[in-house]
């Protein structure tokens, strides 16, 4: 097994700050914004982005988590997944919701998130922010804000680590194969 670190703590911090700037730029400020992270690491990333927006703009953006487990299209092909909590602090009707996840891959998680969102209300605009876009989309979905494009092969594993859950901020690419 070989693992390469492709982003270190400072790279992650810069990417988060840039995403925060881009969100504020395209939204023309922080009005009406709601950040919804997809558990587990999307929630952490969303909190980081919210903190960065506060640094830049001084605004506290509503922050929540949106669990998509029950909306997945592969519930019957994999071992049972335990759902995670969904907490949406404000009414999302007419809001600009930014979905946040750590890695964008097939796009199926985001598809499930869009379904979950529809059950919660009708935002005016839904955007997608991810730390890593690794390609290999299976659905017509793209991210609006990307920390880093990371071309990968399907056999590789991308591990996003945050201090909150993994004791370190880093992104590793695990090439698999022999050790």
């Amino acid at each position: 097994m070989t693992a390469n670190t492709v982003m270190q703590s400072a790279d992650v911090a810069r990417a988060v700050t840039r995403i925060a700037h881009e969100i504020l730029e395209s939204n023309r400020g922080s009005d009406n914004l709601v950040l919804l992270g997809i558990p587990t690491r999307g929630v952490t990333l969303a909190a980081r982005i919210a903190a960065a927006i506060f640094e830049i703009d001084g605004a506290t953006v509503p922050l929540g988590s949106l669990d998509v487990t029950m909306y997945r299209d592969d519930l019957h092909d994999n071992p049972m997944r335990e759902p995670a909590p969904t907490t949406v602090p404000v009414d999302i009707d007419q809001a600009t919701v930014v979905l946040v996840d750590d890695v964008l891959y097939s796009g199926r998680t985001v598809r499930a998130a869009l379904d979950a969102l529809t059950d919660l209300g009708r935002p005016d605009i839904v955007r997608l922010a991810v730390l890593i876009d690794r390609g290999h989309r299976e659905l017509p979905i793209r991210a609006d804000y990307v920390g880093k494009n990371l071309p990968s092969s399907p056999g590789e594993r991308i591990n996003v680590c945050f201090v909150e859950t993994d004791d370190v901020d880093a992104v590793d690419i695990d090439r698999g194969g022999s050790s």
Partner: peptide, 20 residues
């Protein structure tokens, strides 16, 4: 019991149905 907590959280919202 933890999964039931997640289900309980749904009870509060307008659309109570899940597609699972």
């Amino acid at each position: 019991l933890d999964t039931a907590e997640d289900m309980a959280a749904l009870g509060a919202r307008e659309n109570k149905k899940l597609p699972a």
